[in-house]
Amino acid sequence: MQDVYRTSNSLTKNTMHYCPGCAHGIIHKLVAESIDELGIREKTIGVAPVGCAVLAYNYFNIDCVVAAHGRAPAMATGIKRVHPDRIVFTYQGDGDLASIGAAEIVHAAMRGEKITVIFVNNAIYGMTGGQMAPTTLVGQKTTTSPYGRQVEHCGSPIRIAEMLSTIPGAYSVSRVTVTTPANLMKAKKTIKRAFQNQIDGKGLNIVEVLSTCPTNWGRTPYESMRWVDENMVPYYPLGDFKVPEEAK
């Protein structure tokens, strides 16, 4: 019998706790498929963040640790320095990476740590109930920006991919999203390449993935996907910010 579809070996059979319309499930799947296709499941170590993806270890069928909030790149550094022959990745949200863990990601990039970073940006704190993130768009209402984010009060959203692309130690920096089949295919290719680069001994490799939060945005799953395309993509343009020719 011919296989039409098969769940990824790098995912467990556990039911995901993510909300309907949240893109974490899709992004997990892209990561797992990349690991499968590269044949590295038994040598990959994942670092889960604090945030909605804190339970990622329940879904990835690989060795995992759970880092303190924002510290995933530091923890991944410790793991990779002990096991340089293993493939180490962090999976972090925007509160985790762009706010409390800003120093850790910048310095991991500065050192050129040979790790892969999946940075899921949905412009809000999901786990704690929809508070403002550093990536929250101007005017966007959250539970801690009830009047909408105001620039004069708390500044403009931070563009992590653009910032990290200025750091010499960052090897590959891209931004993708998963809002359409075409975007999803491009995201898969980019994520797989970010792992391949690490296999080739290159680092740091980061893929920013624009994602959704229907629950805290107060939008349906479909509206949420469109909201990414219409509101986030104009501020956070998609593409490769830094990818060496040899890696393309």
Partner: peptide, 26 residues
Amino acid sequence: GCFLQAESEVAAINMVYGAASAGARV
């Protein structure tokens, strides 16, 4: 072995956490 000067004590202890998680004396 490996010596690494971290960007902060916070990062340093989390590198230690990572290395210890990875089974090393650290």
